[in-house]
Design a protein around this nucleic acid. Structure first.
Length: 494
RNA sequence: GGCGGCGUACCCAAGUGGUUAAGGGAGAGGUCUGCAAAACCUCCAUGCACCGGUUCGAAUCCGGUCGCCGCCUCCA
């Protein structure tokens, strides 16, 4: 297993050793994952601020994390996976006020929606899903320590700021120097340095508050991750991940807080997924070009979204061009159709398997290659290429009615699917559901479709192919495709 | 301005020194079919933005040029 580590979080021994020119010294690179505790990997992934519905960009982040976790489990490792909820911040306060509800009520509602969304894209539940507001005490402890160390300072309004110039490694993750950074317009005059960031924010009227040594207030955003990761995983832990837009300042600030307090690294490896773009623009709420998970999964199955993600390496930006979702949905259906053929040949449906241990023990040549591919920085794009190769072999063996070869291919795909979070449904049930969706879109009942098929077959028996083709054409226009299989006429949505 | 990254066929995209440059979509031909569809078979980049260089050998390393994107403010 190798992970991306964008720059040296703690030391640059490896990169200096390459004696490359300075320009490349800090470039991100792959590094082997060596769990601190043998056989047990600890992963922290930054979650969401629960103030509005999650979009496909979030989905990509959580699918990226999910594939990492699934792969580690498949290899027989134990995984402790923590993904937090930010349930108190400016955006939440504003949104709750707009809706006339409490911040807590907003959080409750959006966390439920979030759970529904990640379930729709087939993500395994994390080991822990801590909420910021339930760990205020830990955050106050950290703040107190940092103030006592002189790394942080309180201000007259009851806030506490981290003194970035007191942390020598500030900027090492995102490769920036304080002098090189542009400074925004609105600088809080209470800050000693524009780059200092809030550990604790003094109370403003109407905001939820907690008591602190500096008076009532609420935590700053970055602090929760430092507090909760240490609490649930210890410090250092093995892998810290999130969207690439979190590298700076969020992860940089986490490192500053955690390492200033503990004098050991926060995490060994950093993994960041690329952004989703529409055309050439990043998908973001401020640009208003967001596609929610709910809308996407109304259009296509959640697994199609995963399939679309896997087409591009998790690190690279992914363009959500027109038709991509539907293209992925069609590919997914093609995969399920082949699995269904194998089940027909076997006379029974093979149940999906959980990821744990899916890639342990003696492996088929396909699974060996699949595992090696995933082992190289989770190269799902290449792995997917292997899956499609195996799909063709499965169809070929089904064509030849080679039962044992078909079942071997089917088993390979089932195991690969367990790692990729695909094929969680029974093929027959999946295809039924796809048909139902198409039928609803067409506005036809099953009886109507079957009557049309019967009428067409009547015409075919009379050799009235014009009439038969007219019926088929009319259904095609409504999105119902007929296929004359050896066993009879079947239909699917198209 | 600083930092990180990208530019591979009609589209998406893997590949980071060495046999024929994965895979998907689209397209062309074929098997099958009344015809289709599906499935399968075959074809589809002497070339990887451009120009130099290193090397026996580069899409892959180095230098330069052009174009594009992300981050530096909340952001998955």
């Amino acid at each position: 297993m190798r992970c991306r580590r964008p720059g040296a979080a703690r030391s640059c021994a490896a990169c200096c050793a390459t004696s490359r020119p300075a320009r490349r010294r800090w470039a991100g690179r792959k590094e082997a994952l060596r769990p601190r505790e043998a056989g047990h990997v600890r992963v922290y992934w930054c979650g969401v601020t629960v103030y509005s519905r999650t979009h496909v960009g979030h989905a990509r982040a959580f699918v990226s994390a999910d594939v990492l976790v699934r792969y580690l489990l498949a290899r027989g490792l134990r995984v402790t996976f923590v993904r937090n909820f930010t349930d108190i911040d400016d955006k939440m306060i504003r949104r709750a006020a707009d809706e006339g509800i409490t911040v807590a009520a907003l959080a409750e509602r959006e966390i439920a929606a979030f759970h529904a969304d990640v379930r729709r894209v087939g993500c395994l539940p994390p080991t822990h899903e801590p909420r910021a507001t339930e760990h205020i005490v830990l955050m106050l402890d950290l703040s107190r320590t940092l103030v006592a160390q002189g790394v942080a300072y309180p201000t007259p309004d009851g806030s506490v700021y981290f003194r970035v110039r007191r942390f020598a490694g500030y900027g090492k993750l995102s490769h920036r120097r304080l002098e090189d950074m542009e400074v925004g317009e609105e600088i809080d005059p209470a800050k000693e340095d524009p780059h200092d960031f809030a550990l604790w924010k003094g109370a403003k009227p109407g905001e939820p508050t907690w008591e602190s040594p500096w008076g009532p207030g609420r935590p700053g955003w970055h602090l929760e991750c430092s507090a909760m990761s240490a609490h649930y995983l210890g410090q250092p832990f093995d892998v810290h991940g999130g969207g690439s837009d979190l590298v700076f300042p969020h992860h940089e600030n986490e490192i500053a807080q955690s390492e200033a307090v503990a004098s050991v690294p926060l995490a060994d490896l950093w993994v960041h997924n690329g952004m989703i773009t529409f055309g050439s623009d990043k998908m973001s709420k401020s640009l208003g070009n967001v596609l929610s998970i709910a809308d996407a999964t109304d259009r296509v199955p959640g697994e199609a979204l995963r399939l679309l993600f896997y087409g591009t390496h998790y690190r690279a930006p992914l363009d959500f061009g027109p038709g991509r979702l539907e293209e992925a949905a069609r590919s997914l259906e093609r995969l399920y159709e082949a699995l269904a053929r194998a089940d027909d040949l076997a006379g029974r449906s093979l149940a999906p398997i959980p990821p744990a241990g899916a890639l342990t023990g003696p492996l088929s040549p396909f699974l060996e290659e699949f595992a090696a591919t995933m082992d190289d920085d989770l190269n799902a794009a290449k792995a997917l290429g292997l899956v499609f190769d195996r799909l063709r072999e499965l169809n070929r063996t089904c064509d030849a009615a080679d039962r044992s070869a078909a079942l071997a291919a089917r088993d390979d795909l089932t195991r690969a699917g367990a790692v990729l979070g695909l094929f969680a449904e029974a093929p027959a049930a999946f295809l039924d559901a796809a048909r139902s969706r198409g039928q609803r879109r067409a506005g036809l009942t099953t009886a109507e479709i079957e009557a049309a098929i019967a009428a067409r077959n009547d015409a075919r028996h009379r050799k009235d192919f014009r009439a038969a083709d007219t019926i088929r054409e009319r259904l095609r226009e409504q999105g119902i495709l007929l296929e004359d299989a050896p066993t009879g006429t079947v239909w699917r949505a198209g």
